[in-house]
Design a protein around this nucleic acid. Structure first.
Length: 1030
RNA sequence: GCCCGGGUGGUGGAACGGUAGACACGAAGGACUUAAAAUCCUUUGGCCAGAAACGGCUGUGCGGGUUCAAGUCCCGCCUCGGGUACCA
């Protein structure tokens, strides 16, 4: 073999390992570059060709940057806590650690074959105790943090306690309020200005309040016992224990974060999810809502990911308003984005779960309301979502008072109002909101019109262009100031908020959709919390207690009482045990991945999560490549944790990933065969093993059957023609048929043509469970269980469909097979050549030979017919230098703008040209090898060595582009008339625009195209184009 | 519904507002070969014309517009993919 990629790739992979070619050390003299891949969860299925797509892309950039003189950090590791290993453990009893380790070995083998420039000495595994020790440490840090709204930063709890000791909670401007508070025991929720009652802070009950101004004094604080203090502080911590409504997945036996639930089902496994009130750790990510939103502007991420995060955070500006309930002390608070539509309020609606519902309901309506709430509770989240069009509601008998007009407004409850958003109550403006309109229409509530000249008899008018009317001081205003330039109008919204604040009935408010993130999982295979309980009050483990690691359990299932699996561990199984008991929950999957990029900087550090000077050196990730599916999970949480670490001064930046690219999904191309079975009342045509005899139809016949151009007799005739009269006799009596399309394994299919022998072998194995005997069978024997009906060319053509790659669809392409067949360099180049990395595309090996041929062509440039290396030291010609430098220019430009696919074309063009020129000159081949080396490092190293270099090509400086070599004396100007190119004239590049114009006008063809007319204008773009306007 | 992306030959895809279809696959024809593989050469958006050629027309989802010039910018649609939703 001329280009022996197997031998070359093996040789260099081994050398790189031995020489530690890709080891990264901190080296202050060089600028750094941090190229990072989203580390994989090592699943049992191994890698398919979709996984390395992003890895190859980042590897190319890492290598390119190294050629450019950067000190590159390019690490890899494993996100090794996770559900599949645990599910497997539940089924088989095998410890998830064993499964995980086995899978990692397989991943590593697969990755190694592709020739990545990873520094494996920096590998991290989130499930290793020496890694998760620091995950636990960060948890402790967050636990010891509160959010100071004045500084807009997290601070250590000690600063808060100091404030309490000095002034109580005066001057404490902390984030403590979030949507969850409403879900707590309502008796604990204090109204505004309620006197502080330390008795409320009792065991097992956390004190939550909404407005903390002047609630307690330093004396109050000092009079509390330590447990009461502990409970009070829980309200301020950035991770806190609270009873909250959570997404409970009974099938998985655990709670899930909002981003792990899709369409009311678990993202993993698609199991139903229900709402359940549970005591859980939560992360107060809502404190960072605004900073997470603002931070997006400063980072170079795909716009759609930023948009997803913006929507997830869901900032909306408006006002919160308080409505008095007629004849009682209760206040109902609502949030609205259109406070200016206040005069259109004709009723209010509360969520059925709203804490005030039963308190305000009048006796007459009590039964109906309770009935309604009970019905609502019965429905799952999914039912409710599916039932959106079915409007339900119930009057409570109570009335609220309009804050401006003092009119009585009926208070209803309705499912369309969600307890989880805003305050769980709305002021209904049917004229301006379609949902309110629908509700009003259904229950015969008034729909007062508050818009000038707008017909609202059929539907609401939600736009912000409508001019307000019947709205007192807001008349003639719109939300946009001076919409049509008439007069000096102010915004109706602004005006409304001013008035609302003046009257003290509410204030302007920013509301966020995002909620705090549930941080507990009732699972085994995750980080144990460094937390123990005494009198049911949680305490953090001390440093001197040592690190708590996962205890052994007998089964990986919840206990009979529904406690998490860790509760099964015997006391002795715990390496740390304190207080009454340990925390039995574990952390969620996203804990370890929220900071792993920092650990790569200093993976072996036993004193801290990473030394500050190393963090300062490597700093932010310069290029992060991974899937877009983590937009609201990992990518949000790691930003959140980064900000906390930054607030505490552990790191010097508060955004982790400076630039990010999302690689598209690689889809599979499934192949199908068409099984045709003869049936009638006698049964089936039977083959051996008592299964049906299959006739597999080539796609053409299947299509004809489907389109009714063929019927059973045509098929019978085909069988007679192709398989003979004996076969025909067997089927003659059968009058009907079944037809099914079945998956064929794509390894048995090449360009849609089925390898029938391979298919038979597989089929036989399914039937007989033993494929070895297959080879003993002769053609007649084989024909007893399966017969192919070929097309006119004697081929069996398969059908196909583009689908997600999956084992069950037999369409998984592993990189290993391709590396074996074509080599890693070809695979690397081909994956890039497929198209833009960001785009999703079906996997198709059709083009791979083109890339492989390119590498062989390159090889032949410097090898003779007998495969002897041959290079020349002659000076290169002008043409050769031009080919090379055109490539240097384009490759450099394209890599700088991360256009991976076009680089491959450029290199192909260069090699095609050099082949034409029969160029084997060292001065050309050497720089060309460097250009190629990020894409095809093995062949580049091999040629580099043959060219006489003792050191790796990896550190060879990137070739410098010299414009001189591209300079041309003449340019072939395309001459167009009214934009249509007609002919070309070669003209000197130094010519002025006037001279070019003259030359064009003098050209004989110009007369032809002018056709006797006078040119109106002649545009000359130097070295580009000439356009004659007629 | 809303928010993002896309829509270019038979296919994957190129194209700072400046020669649309680079590069590659596939296909067709040819050379070499007993044959196949490999390799090499030619053609390849569509239509029309021709003995020939710097031949003509048309062409980037549809309809308008801006411009000397539009796949590219603007407006209005159609359509496919992804995300998201009683979010007040």
């Amino acid at each position: 073999m001329e280009y022996d990629f197997r031998q070359i790739e093996q040789k260099w992979q081994q050398r790189w390992r031995e020489r530690k070619t890709y080891k990264a050390i901190e080296y202050a003299e060089k600028p750094k570059f941090y190229a990072l891949d989203m580390f994989p969860y090592p699943s049992g299925a191994g890698l398919h060709v979709g996984h390395p797509l992003g890895y190859i892309a980042s590897d190319i950039i890492a290598r390119y940057k190294r050629h450019q003189g950067y000190n590159v950090l390019h690490p890899m590791g494993y996100d090794s806590f996770g559900l599949p290993a645990e599910q497997y453990a539940i089924q088989t009893g095998q410890h998830p650690e064993i499964t995980t380790k086995t899978n990692i070995v397989r991943y590593r083998e697969q990755l190694d074959k592709i020739g990545f420039a990873y520094d494996w000495d920096r590998e991290v595994r989130t499930s290793n105790p020496d890694y998760y020790k620091w995950t636990q440490w960060i948890f402790s840090l967050i636990y010891n943090s509160w959010f100071n709204k004045t500084t807009n930063k997290a601070e250590h709890m000690s600063t808060l306690i100091k404030k309490f000791e000095e002034n109580g909670n005066q001057n404490v401007n902390a984030v403590i309020e979030d949507d969850w508070f409403k879900n707590l025991n309502p008796t604990l929720s204090q109204g505004e200005g309620a006197p502080f009652d330390s008795n409320l802070v009792t065991n097992n009950q956390f004190f939550f309040g909404k407005d903390w101004q002047g609630d307690f004094t330093a004396t109050d604080w000092k009079s509390m016992n330590p447990e009461q203090q502990q409970l009070l502080l829980m309200n301020f911590r950035l991770t806190y224990l609270a009873d909250s409504w959570v997404n409970w997945c009974p099938a998985l036996g655990t709670v899930l974060a909002n981003d792990e639930v899709k369409d009311g089902k678990s993202e993993r496994g698609g199991h139903p999810v229900e709402q359940k009130l549970m005591r859980q750790w939560s992360m107060r990510i809502t404190a960072y809502a605004q900073r997470l939103l603002d931070g997006l502007d400063a980072i170079d991420w795909p716009e759609n990911i930023k948009e997803v995060q913006r929507n997830w955070i869901g900032r909306s500006e408006g006002a919160s308003l308080k409505f008095r309930v007629s004849g009682s002390e209760f206040l109902v608070e609502v949030f609205t984005t259109r406070p200016d539509t206040i005069f259109g309020v004709s009723f209010m609606t509360l969520a059925p779960e709203h804490e005030l519902v039963l308190q305000i309901t009048t006796p007459d309506y009590r039964e109906a309301v309770e009935q309604y709430i009970a019905n609502a509770k019965l429905k799952t989240e999914r039912d409710r979502q599916a039932d959106v069009k079915n409007i339900t509601g119930q009057f409570t008998g109570a009335y609220a008072l309009h804050p401006f007009t003092e009119e009585k407004i009926p208070i209803w409850i309705g499912e369309y109002v969600l307890i989880g958003y805003g305050t769980g109550a709305v002021m209904a403006v049917p004229a301006g909101d379609q949902r309110d309109w629908d509700f009003a229409a259904k229950f015969g509530l008034p729909i007062p019109n508050i818009f000038e000249g707008v017909d609202i008899s059929e539907k609401a008018e939600p736009s912000k262009d409508a001019v307000l009317a019947n709205s007192d001081f807001l008349n003639n205003l719109t939300p946009h100031p001076s919409p049509k330039g008439e007069g000096n109008k102010s915004s109706s919204i602004k005006r409304a908020i001013e008035e609302i604040e003046t009257r003290g009935i509410g204030q302007g408010k920013v509301n966020y959709r995002m909620r705090d993130a549930v941080f507990s999982r009732q699972r085994y295979w995750g980080e144990p919390f460094p937390v123990y309980y005494k009198n049911d009050i949680p305490y953090l483990l001390d440093e001197k207690d040592g690190q708590v690691t996962l205890p052994e359990v007998d089964k990986y299932l919840p206990t009979e009482d529904g406690e998490p699996p860790l509760a099964r561990a015997k006391r002795e199984a715990w390496n740390v045990w304190k207080g009454d008991r340990m925390e039995y929950n574990t952390m969620p999957g996203w804990a370890g991945s929220s900071w792993y990029f920092l650990r790569y900087m200093d993976p072996k550090n036993e004193k801290t999560f990473a030394a500050r000077e190393k963090i300062d050196y490597w700093n932010q990730v310069d290029l992060y490549i991974g899937g877009a599916e983590h937009a609201t999970g990992h990518l949000l949480y790691s930003r959140f944790w980064t900000k906390i670490l930054a607030d505490h001064g552990y790191i010097g930046f508060d955004e982790p990933f400076k630039k990010m690219i999302n690689q598209g999904m690689i889809l599979g191309r499934s192949s199908f065969v068409y099984r045709f079975t003869f049936v009638d009342d006698k049964g089936l045509v039977l083959g051996p093993y008592n299964s049906s005899k299959d006739y597999l139809l080539s796609k053409e016949y299947y299509d004809k059957l489907n389109e009714h151009h063929y019927d059973i007799d045509d098929i019978k005739e085909l069988i007679r023609l192709q398989l003979g009269n004996d076969e025909f006799q067997r089927i003659m009596d059968f009058g009907s048929y079944n037809i099914q399309s079945l998956y064929a394994d794509i390894s048995e299919v090449n360009n849609d043509i089925l390898n029938t022998r391979a298919y038979e072998r597989w089929f036989f194995k399914q039937l007989a469970g033993d494929e070895n005997r297959f080879d003993e069978l002769d053609g007649v024997e084989r024909g007893r269980f399966i017969s192919f009906i070929f097309n006119d060319e004697g081929k069996y053509i398969c059908g196909w469909e583009i689908e997600k790659m999956s084992k069950s669809k037999y369409n998984v392409q592993t990189p290993d097979e391709l590396v074996e067949k074509f080599g890693a360099d070809t695979l690397r180049m081909y994956e890039m050549f497929l198209g833009p990395v960001e785009q999703s595309k079906p996997w198709d090996t059709k083009g791979i030979s083109g890339v492989h041929n390119f590498l062989r062509k390159l090889w032949r440039l410097s090898h003779d017919k007998d495969n002897n290396f041959s290079e020349s030291d002659d000076a290169p010609t002008k043409a050769e230098l031009k080919s090379l430098h055109a490539a240097i220019k384009k490759v450099t430009e394209d890599l700088n703008r991360l256009s991976w696919n076009t680089v491959v074309s450029t290199l192909m063009i260069c090699v095609n040209e050099l082949t034409e020129q029969k160029c084997n000159k060292r001065q050309i081949i050497e720089p060309l090898c460097i250009l190629l080396s990020p894409y095809a490092p093995h062949i580049a190293e091999e040629l580099w060595e043959k060219l006489g270099h003792a050191t790796s090509i990896t550190d060879a400086p990137w070739p410098v582009f010299n414009e001189e070599f591209l300079k041309e004396d003449a340019f072939d100007y395309p001459v167009s008339f009214n934009g249509k190119t007609r002919f070309f004239i070669p003209l000197g590049v130094e010519l002025s625009q006037d001279e070019v114009t003259k030359a064009v006008l003098a050209h004989e063809l110009t007369f032809k195209y002018l056709d006797g007319k006078e040119p109106k204008k002649i545009i000359v773009v130097p070295k580009r184009i000439v356009n004659v306007v007629v």
